[in-house]
Amino acid sequence: MFEAKLNEASVFKKIVESVKDGFKNCNFDCSEEGISMESMDDAHIALVSMKLGVEAFSSYRCDRSISLGLNIESLLKVLRTANNNDVLTMRAEDDGDLLTLVFEDSSNPDRISEYNLKLLNIDQEHMSIPEQEYTATVTLPSSEYQRIIRDLTQLGDSITIDAAKDGVRFTAEGDIGSGSVSLKANTNVGEDEKSIDIAVEEPVALGFNSKYLTQTCKAAPLAPRVSLNMCKRIPIFISYKLQAGHFSFFLAPQISE
C-alpha cells in the first residue's frame, strides 16, 4: 500500500506542469524515502530528475517500493481539477493498476473529489548520473532566469551562457539580430533571494537549444532560486531546491561541427 498526503496539491501540479512539454510518460518511483522521478526526453537531449522527500508530505506510507507509470498529460488533466490549496492524497495498492487521487477543499470540507488514473507499464532507461565537479556555478532568482530565457528565445534558436568570474552573460543570435543579458555578481544585503551568486574556477561558455532551456525555466514557480552548474563539454545541471527535495534538469550542450 502506498499513500501520501500533500497539504497543497499545487506543489505536485507545478512539478508535473514543468515536465509536460518534453516528457510524455514518466515513472514515479515511490519508496520509504519519498517519491522520485527521472526521465529523458525522446531525443536524449534533456533529463529531468525530481525528488520529493518524505518530509514534503503531511503523511506518508509506502510498504513496498513501487513505480507508478503515468502519462503526464492525463495526470495533468486530473491535477488541474484541483484548487491550489486543496489537500491531495495519492493512493495505490501494491499490485494494483490504478493511482487514486483525492482532493479535499480546505475551505469547503464537505466537498471531496476522487479520480482514478490507469497506470502504465513504462519501459524506462535508468541512467546513472555521475558525481560531477562543476567549474562554474551561477545561482540567481528563478524569475530572473525565466525572464532572460523568455526574452532571448525570441531572438534565436540557440542561447549561449557565458560564466566568468565577474559575471554571467546570456546571448542569443538569430535572423532578426542578436541580444544579450549580462548579470554582475552581487549580494543584496538582507535580500538573499535576489542576489546573483557566481562561483567560477574557470570561465566556461556553453550553447543550448533555446526550446530546451525554455523547458528548464518552467519550474520557476517551484522555488525562488535556481542554480546553473557548468563545466566544459558536459551537460549543464540546472537545479531548483525544494523544501524537501529537488527538481533538476540535465541538458546537453550544443557542439559545433
Binding site: F208, N209, A252
Partner: peptide, 14 residues
C-alpha cells in the same frame, strides 16, 4: 550550425 549532443554520451545506462 551547432549540433546538440546526446545525453546518453554522458550518462551510463544502468
Amino acid at each position: 550550425t551547432p549540433i546538440q549532443n546526446d545525453l546518453g554520451e554522458f550518462f551510463t545506462m544502468v
